[in-house]
Amino acid sequence: MSAPQSLSSVNITILGSASAQPSSTRNHSSLALRLDGDVWLFDCGEATQHQLQKSTVKMGKIQKIFITHTHGDHIFGLLPVLASRLNGAGGMTDPAEDPRLQHAEQTRVTPLEIYGPAGTRAYVRNGLTYTHTILGAPYVVHELRFPSDLPDDDLTSMPLHASELATGRNIRQVDGIWVDIWANDLLAVSAAPIFHSVPCVGYVVTELPVPGKIEPAKYIPALKRTKTPISVMKLLQQGESVQLSDGTVLHGPERKPGRKLVILGDTYDSSPIADLAREADILVHEATNAHLPGVDPNTKDDDTYESVEARAKSRGHSTPQMAGAFGKNIGARKLLLNHFSARYPGNDDLDEEAKKIMQAIGTLAAGEFNGPVICARDLMSFDIEPRR
């Protein structure tokens, strides 16, 4: 059976949409990207595994985890998810009897891949080691190294964890970006730095060009004339060329651009990723703080749009207007706001006051953006449709 030429389903599910502190209606940051049967997580804040259990995302389908930065609200849930996903637990009284420690068995299993900035490998290795956690399957950590990072320093003297593969790469930038940190026949992932209070990464997931729409009437007369089986339409649909018995060559429709998803970490300035992110089908951008006079009862009397923006930037964060302006700059088709302050409720589907606040935040972004704006809510799920 030939490999699929395009993805049939691309879905985003929000597992957590809070910033520094979770609230009763928002969990810490995490987003699940479902690509047909596989699941990729972007960030993994505290209690992400609880959110997975509440969602329709299957834990066992997680293949990759991408960390934007190592602040706790984006990484504290990583070790519990690894333990749950990879059958982790404490050891047996006789370690020799624990099948999870048999390395020959682990080498036959595709490892779970983790990508993140320097420190991610040390955090995972030390955390698993000091909690005496044994995993039943392997993992590997690839680090996106900034120019200021030491090229081969793992930031820990701890030896490899029993389940950690030694094949983790230290990926260096090329012209300021990390190019194709992962790719196959359908997808490619690249990344670029974005400005925050600590080293932070934005990821761009690009679906490679997909088959164009076929027009059967263009081909059927020639197929009938040469008595060519209609089944060759499948080859034409994939953009291939077919030579008929009379020498005529039929060419399938030209391939068209695939979907592009831009998923950013915390930032007060996303400009370094702008070129890589252009024409995104969806931009996921933080909007931690907003000035909402007359809407948010917690609004300070002396606050202005300018003072709130200045305060957000000083802490490495953005306002909805900043997110909208960046989305417009890169020509994004849709904007998803997330990473909201704990003061902004996440139950706007049930509570009218919460709905007013989140609509006001969306309106601020829409004033700068030329397309639909969505405000993230925990466990929200929607598909990214193919380009027409």
Score class of each variant (00 low, 15 high):
Gly72Leu: 05
Asn87Lys: 15
Gln102Ile: 14
Ile65Tyr: 07
Glu97His: 08
Ala83Glu: 13
Gln102Ala: 13
Gly91Asn: 14
Ala96His: 09
His69Phe: 01
Arg100His: 10
Leu78Thr: 08
Gly90Asp: 05
Asp73Tyr: 10
Ala83Ser: 15
Asp94Pro: 01
Leu86Cys: 11
His103Trp: 14
Arg100Met: 03
His74Arg: 03
Gln102Met: 15
Pro99Phe: 01
Thr68Gly: 15
Phe66Asn: 09
Thr93Leu: 13
Ser84Trp: 09
Gly77Asp: 11
Ile75Met: 09
Leu86Ser: 12
Ser84Ile: 00
Thr93Val: 05
His103Val: 12
Thr68Arg: 05
Gly72Phe: 12
Gly91Phe: 04
Ala96Cys: 04
Lys64Arg: 15
Gly77Glu: 09
His74Tyr: 00
Gly88Leu: 06
Asp94Gln: 12
Glu97Met: 04
Arg85Gly: 01
Leu82Arg: 12
Ile65Val: 14
His74Cys: 02
Leu86Asn: 13
Thr93Arg: 12
Asp94Phe: 01
Met92Pro: 00
Pro99Met: 04
Leu79Cys: 06
Thr93Gln: 12
Pro95Leu: 09
His69Tyr: 04
Thr68His: 14
Thr70Val: 02
Phe66Thr: 07
Glu97Asp: 13
Phe76Tyr: 09
Gly72Ser: 14
Leu78Val: 08
His71Ala: 14
Asp73Leu: 03
Thr93Gly: 05
Asn87Glu: 15
Leu86Met: 12
Ala96Asn: 13
Phe76Lys: 13
Leu86Tyr: 11
Phe66Cys: 14
Val81Asn: 12
Gln102Val: 14
His74Ala: 00
Ala83Val: 13
Glu97Gly: 04
Leu78Glu: 09
Ile67Ser: 07
His71Phe: 06
Asn87Gly: 11
His103Cys: 00
Gly72Pro: 05
Arg100Leu: 02
His74Ser: 02
Met92Ala: 02
Pro80Ser: 10
Glu97Pro: 03
Leu86Gln: 11
Thr68Tyr: 00
Pro80Arg: 11
Ile67Tyr: 06
Leu82Gly: 13
Asp73Lys: 04
Glu97Tyr: 01
Ala89Tyr: 05
Thr93Lys: 10
Pro95Thr: 06
Ile75Glu: 07
His71Arg: 14
Leu101Pro: 03
Gly72Tyr: 13
Asp98Gly: 03
Pro80Ile: 07
Thr93Ser: 12
Asp94Trp: 05
Ile65Glu: 07
Asp73Phe: 12
Asp98Gln: 04
